[in-house]
Design a protein around this nucleic acid. Structure first.
Length: 269
DNA sequence: ATGACAACCTGTGGGC
DNA sequence: TGCCCACAGGTTGTCA
């Protein structure tokens, strides 16, 4: 589930507990993630000093003196701080054990995520990624320029990580509503002015979600185990059939490329 | 290059 | 209570 705000919430949650610590071991209970967790992961990182915890797109990057640990939460993952002696629960696949007696516990029922050392075999994952949505280089002109001639729905275009990273299904729905753009519209048929509104909406909705600790739909918890509170702010996602908060008409529920899509047929054109 | 879709996997909720 | 189906926050790879 985690989109950019949830990953950023996780980063901020684990940072105070992990920055400046060293890794004493990495305990792998189940290595069957999206890509198998390497056998030698613990050997590589045991004794490593953590120097930073960064985020790029929806990847968490743990910088250490022995290299970078790359972590993705997939659809159902979480990474939270626990006391290392706490009994692991189902789907608690990995513990990154720290020198302060705590551990970063990776939990992921669907196992779509990954925990890997960043090396030459997988660094391609970070190449070809578009700009960060909260960076200044991401703006309406960027969206406009990249979308000319594209027939794909603007929602699909907005969720393409090569165009801009971190905008997943929830926030794509929300940003398009805020900008008054119908998600089904061809990306190449949206004007510069409207893309400027969209870029602003993306920044605003993501920034607000980060301040709320992300969106918890089922069981997302941030680095300190707390749920996010943005769900109550959602205008359209999960509200199909309910009244539009702007005009009161019934929100239309559909699918675009198999992804739940909700919009107001009156407010979004 | 583009766009549509299947695949990866488990859990949950609705309908009957 | 149980069974079956549809669906769920992401990304990659394949195919036409």
């Amino acid at each position: 589930m985690p989109e950019l705000p949830e990953v950023e919430t996780t980063r901020r949650g684990i940072l105070p507990h992990s920055d400046g610590q060293s890794i004493t071991a990495i305990v792998v209970r189940d290595s069957r993630l999206r890509w198998p967790v390497p056998e030698n992961l613990s050997a590589q990182f045991s004794g490593a000093h953590i120097t930073a915890v960064r985020r790029r797109a929806k990847y968490l990057l743990i910088d250490t003196s022995r290299g970078v640990l790359l972590c993705h939460l997939g659809m159902s993952g979480s990474l939270r701080v626990v006391v290392s002696t706490e009994v692991p629960r189902k789907h608690d696949h990995i513990d990154i054990v720290l020198s302060n007696g705590k551990a970063l516990r990776y939990h992921d029922p669907r196992r779509f995520g990954c925990v890997l050392p960043l090396d030459e075999t997988n660094q391609a994952l970070l190449q070809h990624l578009g700009p960060e949505p909260l960076d200044d280089v991401f703006d309406g002109e960027h969206l406009y320029a990249r979308s000319r001639g594209r027939k794909t729905p603007v929602k699909t275009f907005l969720m393409d990580g090569r165009i801009v990273v971190g905008v997943g299904n929830i926030y794509a729905n929300e940003a398009l509503y805020a900008a008054g753009i119908r998600p089904t519209r061809a990306a190449g048929q949206v004007s510069l002015v409207r893309y400027q509104a969209l870029a602003d909406a993306v920044k605003q909705v993501l920034a607000k979600a980060i301040t709320q600790g992300g969106t918890t739909l089922r069981d997302f918890v941030g680095g300190e185990g707390k749920p996010g509170y943005f769900a109550q702010e959602l205008s359209v996602y999960g509200r199909g059939g309910e009244p539009c908060r702007t005009c009161g008409r019934t929100l239309f529920d559909t699918q675009i490329n198999k992804r739940a899509t909700v919009f107001c047929r009156y407010c979004q054109r």
